[in-house]
Design a protein around this nucleic acid. Structure first.
Length: 539
RNA sequence: GCGCCUGUAGCGCAAUGGAUAGCGCACUAGCCUCCGAAGCUAGUGGUACAGGUUCGACUCCUGUCAGGCGCACCA
């Protein structure tokens, strides 16, 4: 796997810093805010000048000089300039971009991969909904983010697995069972009072009817209903294009001796103590606000107890990096869980918690109110039925995961310009159409140097930014930047298309432009594949 | 009261502390005898407020105001 352009430039800068007498500086490369400032820029001279009390332009001059003398810089850098307060701006040669196009055409999507993960085993745990009802849009957003992040990590050389932790035991399942029981008695003609904290949805009646037919015993109702609903959830996820590698049962965990073992380990290390009849975990040692109860005074466990064992088990299964996706209501839970993995001897950095903010669904310009217990909430199923898989996935990924998301059903349904999914897909279909109607085939042997127009180079540069986009997604653990990038790539193509004819009278130029749009198509397709959104040849 | 997320153009959103704050929608005016007009071009218009750190702040810190969510020996 080759080094990408950022890595090459960073190597050059580091070597230059060494020559200029600076040690161990953190160098960042930016895409400049303005195209006049080159293809890449760094503010390292400004930073160093500050620390060493030197003139930034002088520092920049020394660095530039050193890079210019470096033989490995030849070929892909056209010019390096110190500009503004002391920014170092890199202007890449067109040849560099032509090489990129050629690589993509000869090797396909493989040419876009970068090995950031180096085979690191990652476990992404997400959704993990109680099997007590259909998935909500909050789960849907997690499902989309988790699934795509896993795909991107795989693309970037990690070995990710996706896991759904199944809360198939405990309070919620008991309440579910009781809810079904009550509805069964109601259907049998009995007068009942239905408690407010029971599951109110219509689907409970359906389950009650089936449970009656199958003559399910009272004690088995919770499990029966849970399994019934789990099948519904699995089907919903399948239709959403999300496939889990593992379904991890909480019940199986609690029936094993894993919890006992992990408690012994914690006790040996002195992180457990008894007080007021309860067993406490000393999470404050690792920065939590207060210690946490793991076994209540009535001898039952809190949720934290199996969770500690669960996460220890993740490490035991060989995963080196754990990524959990939680709703914003769990953020107070982060410190205690992190404390537990540290108590068991793991690095705090081995666990990343991604808080996936809620999505608000808008219909007819108004937010739709939701309540889980009352069964009044928009389900993943409804969103899928209404807007389809492609728009649903794309929309859930369109915003920063840590930010609120407004999901407008009406926009998502529209097959028009204000729907970004179609904008990107349209670019792909448009290119496909041109390639179909061309008598000449696009290939890597085209004379790329014929691509001189502003819009041609802008498109070529945008193509070359794909790997950096993947890089950003990995470092932020957030796939949303990819949706932004694909819209920009689509835009660069549409602009090019509008001003320049691909299929013209000059065969050599036609070939070069065919190669350019074919490379665009390959990158669009790679991005849409990662998002799990279809890439239509026609639409 | 405490914690998390958010405040940028009429609306929805961008901008690892960097250079003239970008994009879409809407609105206005244009572009199809020609590869897909689900597209393109141009115009209008903005950092909630008050301090601070910095050569430089939408970004970091403090406070105020506004919105969303959460604060259990629940899961």
């Amino acid at each position: 796997m080759k080094k990408n352009i950022q890595e090459l430039l960073l190597d050059l800068i580091q070597a230059a810093l060494d020559q200029c007498g600076f040690k161990e500086a953190d160098v960042y490369l930016d895409f400049p805010t303005d195209k006049r400032f080159g293809d890449f820029t760094t503010n390292i001279a400004l930073k160093l000048a500050k620390v060493h009390k030197r003139n930034p332009r002088e520092v920049a001059a020394c660095i530039i000089d050193a890079i210019n003398k470096n033989a490995s810089a030849k070929g892909f850098i056209r010019e390096i300039k110190a500009e503004g307060a002391g920014f170092i701006n890199f202007y890449l040669s067109d040849d560099y971009y032509y090489e990129e196009l050629k690589e993509i055409l000869s090797r396909g999507p493989e040419a876009l991969k970068i090995n950031l993960g180096k085979g690191k085993k990652v476990l992404l745990e997400f959704v993990s909904a109680n099997p007590t009802g259909s998935l909500s849009v909050a789960h849907a957003r997690q499902a989309a983010v988790g699934d795509v992040l896993a795909s991107i990590m795989d693309f970037a050389g990690f070995k990710p697995k996706k896991e759904f932790y199944l809360n198939d035991k405990g309070n919620q399942i008991n309440i579910l069972g009781n809810s079904v029981d009550l509805r069964m008695r109601e259907l049998a003609g009995e007068q009942i009072e239905f408690p407010e904290n029971y599951y109110q949805g219509e689907y409970i009646y359906e389950i009650a009817k089936i449970a009656k037919e199958k003559k399910i015993a009272h004690e088995g109702l919770g499990d029966f209903a849970g399994n019934y609903i789990l099948d519904i959830i699995k089907k919903e996820l399948e239709d959403f294009g999300v496939k889990f590698d593992y379904w991890y049962s909480q019940k199986a965990l609690e029936d094993s001796d894993k919890i006992k073992n992990v408690f012994e380990k914690l006790k040996d290390k002195g992180y457990l103590y008894e007080e007021e009849g309860a067993l406490w975990f000393k999470s404050t040692v690792f920065g939590d606000d207060k210690d946490r109860v793991v076994i209540k005074s009535d001898k039952s466990m809190t949720y934290l107890a199996p969770d500690i064992a669960y996460h220890e088990d993740k490490f035991r299964r060989g995963f080196e990096l754990l990524i959990n996706m939680w709703g914003p209501d769990h953020h107070g839970y982060i410190n205690r869980l992190k404390a537990s993995i540290q108590a068991l001897g793991h690095d705090a950095g081995a666990l990343s918690i991604i808080i996936v903010q809620l999505a608000t669904i808008y219909r007819d310009g108004k937010p739709v109110q939701m309540s889980t217990r009352k069964g009044q909430y928009i389900t993943l199923r409804e969103v899928l039925d209404e807007v389809g898989k492609d728009a649903a996935r794309f929309f859930f990924l369109m915003r920063k995961t840590s930010s609120h998301l407004d999901f407008d059903l009406d926009t998502a349904k529209k097959q028009s310009a204000d729907n970004p999914v179609y904008y990107v897909q349209y670019a792909h279909a448009r290119i496909s159409s041109i390639l179909r109607s061309s008598a000449i085939k696009a290939d890597k042997h085209a004379d790329f140097t014929l691509l001189k127009e502003k819009e041609e180079m802008a498109l070529a540069k945008k193509i070359a930014q794909f790997t950096e986009t993947i890089n950003v997604c990995i470092s932020t653990l957030d796939p949303y930047m990819l949706t932004v990038y694909l819209q920009e790539l689509g835009q660069a193509f549409h602009k090019f298309y509008d001003l320049h004819r691909v299929l013209g009278t000059d065969d050599a130029l036609t070939k070069a432009r065919l190669a350019l749009i074919d490379a665009t198509k390959i990158v669009l397709a790679a991005g849409l594949d990662l998002l799990g959104v279809s890439k239509p040849e026609k639409m």
